[in-house]
Write a protein that binds this DNA or RNA. Structure first.
Lengths: 273, 273
DNA sequence: GCAGTAGTAG
DNA sequence: CTACTACTGC
């Protein structure tokens, strides 16, 4: 079957429910992973999103900040909300997409929101940066520990808050000392990736020599003209899914929608057997 | 000449500039008195309101709260910002409308925002209520002291935050202990009125037996059905203008406008010679 | 710049 | 319910 998966840091799902609806009606993803929902589970607009065609919804939320949710047209089980580095924050939600290929090999979807890391890239004086590095290390440990890692069919999506490649930022040189593109972050993200042999699906579809962004700050008034973006949102897949990712698109037109998120959605189409 | 004067507690002029424009284009007042502009003078949208046909603008503002402004199509002079009871708040602005009848008898317009008074109608335990009573007494002293009071042509408008008559509230009985309609307030407002022989222009046009409201709380979701309003906004004139107020209207349709103020405008037409 | 929080004010 | 003040976070 064809599976369309989308990820979007929505920056408050309650405030942008109308934009989620607009996006879903236009693109019809089968699975939609949201980050920064900024609400508790009981405040999540579940009914409206069910009505939009997602009967299966899992929410991992907290008050005011962070929070992730996975919406699905197809059934899933074992929604796993996990506090990966023990700070009591809602940043990781995994579901087993058993409805994607009933009776066949399992497929799981891991929705992640990595800490942004604050302003100063020094863990000694900025605990938020320390937390970000710790969280990335915890991801390495958690996913590295998955059994039979080479055979598992897994998709990891979300706002990883790191732009790993020089072409993932508008200026590699200017951003080397800016949180999201510093060597301690990019090297740790590479450790996360390598520990599980993750494939960077977006870069399978867009050459690493080409600039590719998913986030533009609200502070740039003309985001498209200045184009000071970063690729903070990612779609990864395990080697068992290599070749299954048949298409990928970054929906940057949503960045012009009224009162939108500073992140744009990323869509990946998988051909699952 | 015919002079159309309007008063409106706008509850943030910056947030509702579009509504002011809509009102002005529809009703074309010559003088518009705003209360609760909620900004300092340098934040006031002067250019936009000049472009709307008010070349003469006086602002008496403070940061965040209160504040009054008088906009005029016709020239005025001597804008008098006055702290009537010495608490450093922006609540009173008078202008001399010499352009209304050039070379003739003077005409002045006094724009007032009386303190709301808090929740508990007891000056001993609620200083905001004390302030309201003090402010009303200060108005009595200030206007009572105007020279040749019987001959002066003066108009006083604004949000006086008192509903003096039983028909100025939706339930006289239920509101007798609610700030805005308690005896200490209504008796003090009557002292203000009597000390200068002010005429209650609105009640010259609508019988005191008829309910008449200018404010409906945001908390009533269906304001028109429940109609739990109060007459907090007023238009007064000195006896020298008796008979000059040829028409009066309460613009309650604006209460249905999107994101509107909880107060509606009051328009009074004067035939000035 | 634009979310959320809390408190104050109306 | 809807303004404002601030603060925090991204």
């Amino acid at each position: 079957m064809r599976l369309r998966l989308a990820t979007w840091n929505i920056n408050s799902v309650r405030l942008r429910l109308d934009l989620v609806e607009r996006f879903v009606r236009a693109e019809k993803p089968d699975v939609l992973c949201l980050q920064e929902i900024k609400c508790q589970e009981d405040q999540f607009p579940r009914a409206a999103l069910e009505a939009l065609g997602f009967p299966h919804i899992a929410v991992c939320g907290q008050k005011g900040y962070h929070g992730v949710a996975t919406l699905s047209r197809i059934p899933f089980k074992r929604a796993d909300r996990r506090d990966l580095c023990g700070r009591g924050q809602a940043r990781y939600l995994a579901v087993a997409l058993d409805g994607a290929a009933p009776g066949r090999k399992p497929l799981s979807c891991h929705n992640v929101y990595v800490p942004a890391g604050g302003d100063i890239p020094d863990p000694a004086i900025n605990d938020k940066f320390q937390h970000k590095l710790d969280f990335l290390d915890a991801m390495t440990a958690w996913f590295g520990g998955y059994r039979a890692k080479g055979k598992n069919r897994m998709i990891l999506v979300g706002d990883l808050n790191v732009a790993p490649l020089p072409t993932d930022v508008w200026s590699h040189k200017q951003l080397l000392k800016v949180v999201s593109h510093t060597p301690p972050e990019t090297s740790r993200l590479e450790q996360v990736r390598a520990a599980h042999d993750w494939i960077d699906v977006m870069r399978r579809h867009v050459s690493p020599e080409q600039k590719l962004f998913t986030w533009w700050s609200y502070r740039n008034r003309d985001w498209r003209a200045s184009n000071r973006g970063r690729r903070l949102d990612h779609v990864w897949a395990t080697p068992a899914l290599d070749g299954a990712a048949v298409a990928m698109r970054v929906l940057d037109q949503t960045r012009d929608w009224p009162r939108t998120s500073d992140h744009v959605p990323v869509i990946a189409d998988f051909e699952i057997d």
